[in-house]
Amino acid sequence: MPNFHRKLERSAIGFVLAIVGVSAIGGFVEIAPLFTIHETVEQAPDMRVYTPLEVAGRNIYIREGCYACHSQMIRTLRDEVERYGPFSLAVESQYDHPMLWGSKRTGPDLARVGGKYSDAWQVAHLINPRDVVPQSVMPRYAWLKRNGLKTDDLGLHLAAQRRVGVPYTDDMIANAGADAYGQANPDSPYASGVTARYGEATNVRAFDGSAGRLTEMDALVAYLQVLGRLTDAAQKTAAAQE
């Protein structure tokens, strides 16, 4: 045995292989089973995918680093469930590429923030958090309402997501730009296509308070308002436990 190790060490390549082998075991053992996890965990066949506007909003959430201060993962602890709602299930983030569970709560958890506040509150809060919550330390995001939203490449975004496993249809990809516009303009002819493709329960509103031009504020608020509402699997699980 010592001779074996001595040889291993004398040839640097053998040493390299030993390090890779020894270190790789842990990761493989813990990660590999997670790719078959769908066999055992809860299912949510009725769960819908994000609309193009919500995808754009999610990308703004990522771009601004919101995940650095807000988690989207309610743990199975009594105080968290009472503060934020039913604990998060694995299936709820099955379409999140990447997940945004977060690691720090400088601000509160957002996993179930959808529908908790009005659009007007969200917009005012994002423009200047201290207008709404005087003690807040969140940065202002006033420019989101000034910046127009880029929609011409949303189809490409949906197509890329389909490549990593999100079930977008050809129809959804082809109409991505129009659907983004329609979701924030309920009176436009594009609005009906959104509910036809993503379901009657989809929020179709002028999220930033003014119809017409699409802004980054529209997208981010649309995303925030759908958090925790893509499926009711967590509520069902909570009800079943009581």
């Binding site: 045995m1 010592p2 190790h5 075991i25 053992v29 590999a32 078959t36 996890i37």
Partner: peptide, 29 residues
Amino acid sequence: TFDHQTLVAFSKSWGLFYLIALAAVVLVY
């Protein structure tokens, strides 16, 4: 075709054996 149960069972049990075997090899060396 590994099903979830097999993979989990493997992961749960063999980690310990690896740990012990490796520790023995390193200590001997």
